[in-house]
Design a binder for these strands. Structure first.
Lengths: 346, 346
DNA sequence: CGATTCACCGCATACGATTGCAGTAATAAA
DNA sequence: TTTATTACTGCAATCGTATGCGGTGAATCG
């Protein structure tokens, strides 16, 4: 090859170029390529000439042109909180795989758990409409989704129990049940009486739900929640570390803690280690999510497994059913159960 | 709000709608909105009417129309091997942040380390041209990149020492030097003589380079590499586990191993643990990358830190300098040094 | 042999926004 | 009063593709 030092963007190859080379009209090229030659027949010889010209010029159709004409964008958008959180990787990966199977590209945006980020995402989609949107919203309301759907006509699938829009398919884990079970297990099987909770702001629906499940489990077992036992983090490992430190500074520290996600649980383990406490003997720790590092640390983290990969797969398939027009009924709700994975940290 | 059960995608609001409402022509609306009213003046009263109509209809310009006319796509594409590998997260995140700052959306594709995947990515970009491409290619040649640039006119930035296209900006870590140093350190400071290597196929430029650095370090120190000490994985934790198992099954197993990435090193630690070996007393382990879990495991992993976030930032900034036309000279090469992080596993 | 049918192909328009060019009215200059 | 200038606005072409409609030549039918 010869690498020119400045490859002038050679004028892009269009259908007209192909047409000229094949001595046919541009419409004929279009018909040959789009397979509509079944309806409006094209001579075999002509077809061959066109195909040859296509190959010779290396013609690739320009998607943008078709999009303007109202065709499919062959693009879906994914909104998550933070690509840096391992919880989203299997989800994103599953979505990308399903999309790839359908010949679709995937746009990804982070919101950092902020409503502004989520709204900004919607604006982006209105400016650049896509065929489908797959999201993990924390703050968006059904009204926001309604606006999005009305303006863009996109199919929408979302993760989260709190989404109830009539046209949006949703998946969600049975996290409330699982939290309840995990706490109950901590009390009755492991014999803990002083249990702390590392949660997040109530503005996260998932956070509020898990906290409520925690309180219910405690109450039902007749175990009291001591002051200072309800700490708040921001989903990050660092915040988990701080939260546990705060609890351990109490006069009567808990003997076990439940963290709303693994990252915070891992941070808590770090704090325990630094304070010279043994896990689980001095302080038992239970996480939520079951991200890979949970089974790499020592002691291995006892946690509740969600199945983000599976969830992403379900969501993506549902989304493409709508995009492909195979389904257009009311929003479907898929619940995928979580599993308590008992390892060594509790 | 009222959630209709089937919000008919209300006919999208176009400039013509705005024009009609404001009793002006569509071109006038365009001029008001695109700020070109500085060159071609527009009456204040007219301008106000247009703006009011825009707000009233909630008009948002359709990006696709402008794109077809040769405007910017406001979109960049990112190609990585696997979003599931923690190494790429800071990189992707940095790119997304820089892109967001420039009001750009980001498309992401995985190649799973396969050449087919990389080529498929290029085809996608030719079909849907973007303003910029940021990639971590393992197999793509300069010729492939040349074709990509020629066909799409996109600015390209890549990670990898082996990319030398005259129009592509590149970043790369000084991984060869770091591997050399790490091995030398293992020999002279830690006193190891029997050192194993967990690498990958030679078809990965990075793999070949690190392996060569390993061999050079060994040779220069006059330490022999025993048969069976060169194992091959596929970058995954599982493969690292198997690789160490294979080495430990040798009659004379190594006392230390170097793994080409942290995932494989973590897998090796897992294997050591299962075989009842103490790290680092029985077997020392050194990784490469310094992903977060490296400092969560016990013993903490000694590893060579690359700085993917920093690299992504550099690459993204370079890319946007080209996109914005602030730079269009020859490809720049940025080297960012790696650091040996001594922790507890070696 | 004239009329109908059919196979095949091109013309022209539309999608939504930008922009060169032209046009109109009002004002300024001659 | 005529001309030149300015301030403002509209017309129409354009990007690349899909598609309704119309046209042409040949074959078939009555």
């Amino acid at each position: 090859m010869s690498v020119r030092s400045r490859p002038q963007r050679s004028a892009p190859v269009t259908m007209r170029d192909v047409a000229k080379l094949a001595h046919v009209s541009q419409s004929t090229v279009s018909r040959v390529l789009s397979g509509s030659s079944d309806l409006i027949p094209i001579g075999d010889e002509t077809k061959a000439r066109v195909l040859k010209a296509v190959k010779q010029l290396g013609y690739q159709p320009n998607l943008h042109a078709g999009i303007l004409r109202g065709q499919k964008t062959q693009l879906i958008a994914v909104m998550i909180a933070d690509i840096g959180n391992a919880f989203y990787h299997p989800l994103v990966r599953a979505v990308q795989d399903v999309a790839g199977f359908h010949q679709y590209d995937v746009m990804i945006a982070n919101t950092d758990h902020m409503r502004d980020g989520e709204l900004h995402f919607c604006e982006s989609i209105i400016r650049r409409p896509v065929d489908g949107v797959l999201m993990v919203p924390y703050h968006l309301t059904d009204a926001d989704l309604d606006r999005l759907i009305e303006r863009t006509g996109a199919a929408v699938a979302a993760m989260g129990q709190h989404i109830e829009h009539p046209l949006v398919d949703t998946v969600f884990g049975s996290d409330d049940i699982s939290v309840f079970d995990a706490i109950t297990w901590l009390i009755h099987v492991r014999g803990h009486q002083r249990i702390g909770f590392i949660g997040v702001t109530q503005s996260f629906a998932a956070g509020a739900r898990r906290r409520q499940a925690f309180e219910q489990a405690m109450q039902q077992a007749g175990v009291t929640i001591w002051p200072g036992y309800m700490q708040q983090g921001d989903w990050s490992a660092e915040s988990g570390e701080q939260a546990l430190r705060a609890m351990l500074a109490l006069q009567q520290p808990p003997t076990a803690v439940f963290a709303c996600n693994d990252l915070m649980a891992l941070g808590a383990m770090e704090a325990a280690d630094q304070l010279g406490l043994r896990v689980p003997q001095d302080i038992a720790i239970v996480g939520f999510d079951d991200i890979p590092p949970a089974s790499w640390v020592r002691p291995r983290l006892t946690t509740v497994a969600q199945h983000p990969g599976h969830m992403g797969d379900i969501l993506a398939r549902a989304l493409f059913e709508r995009i492909d027009g195979e389904y257009d009924g009311p929003g479907r709700r898929y619940e995928v159960p979580c599993d308590l994975i008992v390892r060594e940290s509790a």
